[in-house]
């Protein structure tokens, strides 16, 4: 199925969870936060939250800023 991840189109197997997506991206162990369709999905819900076709996912982290 197709997703939008940080504004880019991405293919992932149907029924994949957020945890699976983060694993694919090498981000599972990182300090990131995730939004799906503009709602935060908390860390504890990553393993059980299945993504759906055309979901819009945002993955963010902390960077330098003032």
């Amino acid at each position: 199925m197709r997703l939008s991840v940080n504004g880019e189109e991405r293919e992932i197997e149907a029924g994949a969870t957020i945890e699976r997506l983060l694993e694919d991206l090498g981000l599972r162990a990182r300090r990131v936060a995730v939004e799906v369709n503009r709602e935060v999905v908390t860390r504890d819900a990553w393993p059980c939250t299945e993504l759906r076709e055309r979901d819009s996912v945002e993955i963010v982290q902390f960077v330098g800023g003032g």
């Binding site: 940080n6 990182r30 990131v32 945002e58 963010v60 902390f62 330098g64 003032g66």
Partner: peptide
């Protein structure tokens, strides 16, 4: 210390993080 919240570069996430 203040930090900003930004998208991770998913094609090149980099090895290191500010924190």
């Amino acid at each position: 210390v203040t930090v900003a919240v930004r998208r991770v570069n998913i094609t090149d996430a980099g090895k290191e993080n500010l924190l």
